[in-house]
């Protein structure tokens, strides 16, 4: 575990500016050494993860926060892509959405989502949620090291 020694990178895939800002604010309040990278649709998410185009040289994220309702390529497609890609599949993905639809939940776990979380309406709870996600996935959970691609 080297969690607290280095800055953690989180990729947020979210198209709603209000939600992006809210997540940024919540992370700021949590005080953990985190860099939050934001992309606004599924296609950009894949480009980021493959470090293509405008995303050349970006770090491999330690955690992905993924919304489901996204333009161009939806969250489930991104999820399926990542979890079927040997270089990316070990990155934990937390689905962060407002959809309480049972089919969505089931489908996401089938596609190997690591966790499915509903966005709470209450900001206090949202902060608590973001804090829980960070502390669990970045501090408590032991994860495999990224495959050495250098």
């Amino acid at each position: 575990m080297e969690g607290s020694d280095r800055k953690m990178d989180i990729l947020l895939v979210e198209d709603n500016p209000g939600d992006i800002r809210l997540t940024q604010e919540a992370m700021r309040e949590s005080g953990l050494p985190i860099t939050l990278h934001v992309v606004k649709d599924g296609v950009q998410a894949i480009e980021f993860l493959e470090q293509e185009g405008a995303h050349e040289g970006v770090p491999r994220p330690d955690l992905i926060l993924l919304d489901l309702n996204l333009p161009r390529m939806n969250g489930k497609e991104v999820l399926a892509y990542v979890k079927s890609n040997p270089e990316l599949e070990t990155i934990p993905i937390v689905i962060l959405t407002t959809s309480s639809n049972d089919d969505d939940i089931r489908k996401c776990y089938t596609l190997q989502a690591n966790c499915y979380v509903l966005k709470p309406i209450d900001f206090e709870r949202f902060i608590g949620l973001v804090r829980s996600i960070e502390s669990f996935w970045l501090e408590l959970a032991a994860l495999p090291q990224a495959a050495d691609t250098t």
Binding site: N16, G18, D19, L22, N69, T97, T98, S99, N101, K119, P120, I121, D122, F123, F126
Partner: peptide, 12 residues
């Protein structure tokens, strides 16, 4: 989904 989003924005 869609009706919840704006509400969450207001309250949050």
């Amino acid at each position: 989904h869609d009706l919840q989003e704006p509400l969450r924005m207001v309250s949050s």
